[in-house]
Design a binder for these strands. Structure first.
Length: 210
DNA sequence: CAGCAGATTGACT
DNA sequence: GTCAATCTGCTGC
């Protein structure tokens, strides 16, 4: 049987915006310390385009304790604490020294959905289980311990899933980056049209036609 | 060292 | 719609 996992080459391309779009429909999975696997179809992403992107933690090649892993060769996880309480999960792409990242903003649970719902304190099937970047990490059991982890390893990885027809892919400006000047308006958020698990659906109407 | 903003979420008016 | 929870890193005194 051939591996369902995406291989390293998928993540090493030079265009993180394209990778962000192509991750829609893929399946993000994690394994808990006790061996339980949870995962969901990626239905919403955002691209953060490195040193030249004012919205990125790596703008201007800034380096801090938490952003060090952004400069590693992809694919590795970059997980950081937002507002002091939410873990946000990113996939670092490209070669060493180029801090490209894709934020995974929403999943549709497909493996271990009951456990994902329990971690969130919601009923299985509730579309909010992994809707929003903080919810994604919580549903998958991801925290700072995963930052720097290779996505080719045993704790967190991405599987092939199925391809999404181009006419089902919508884009918009990224959420919550109004501080980023002209980069705030770049259409680097991608989501699957009409999918119930996509976050901030109140903002999506204007973009449904792409 | 104090103050503040932030790639968010959920509870409450 | 408003607001608090609570950590990291930046700015300015």
């Amino acid at each position: 049987m051939s591996s369902r996992r995406l291989s390293e080459s998928f993540f090493l391309g030079p265009d993180v915006v394209e990778i962000s779009r192509k991750l829609l429909g893929k399946v993000l999975c994690s394994r808990s310390p006790s061996g339980r696997i949870t995962g969901g179809v990626i239905v919403e992403t955002e691209a953060y385009a490195g040193a030249g992107d004012r919205a990125s933690h790596a703008f201007g090649n800034r380096r801090t304790g938490r952003t060090a892993v952004m400069y590693r060769r992809g694919p590795v996880a970059y997980v950081y604490l937002c507002y002091g309480l939410h873990w946000l999960f990113n996939i670092i792409t490209n070669v060493e020294g180029v801090p490209h990242a894709v934020l995974v903003r929403a999943l549709q649970p497909v493996r271990g959905a009951a456990l994902m719902a329990r971690r969130r304190g919601l009923d299985k099937g509730d579309p909010r289980v992994a809707s929003g970047p903080g919810a994604v990490s919580r549903a998958l059991g991801i925290s700072s311990a995963h930052s720097g982890e290779s996505l080719l390893g045993r704790r967190v990885w991405v599987e092939r899933g199925r391809s999404i027809p181009p006419d089902m892919v919508c884009s918009s400006r990224r959420i919550g980056v109004s501080y980023a000047g002209r980069d705030a308006r770049r259409p680097w958020r991608f989501f699957i049209r009409g999918n119930a698990c996509v976050s901030r659906r109140d903002l999506n109407r204007n973009y449904e036609n792409n």
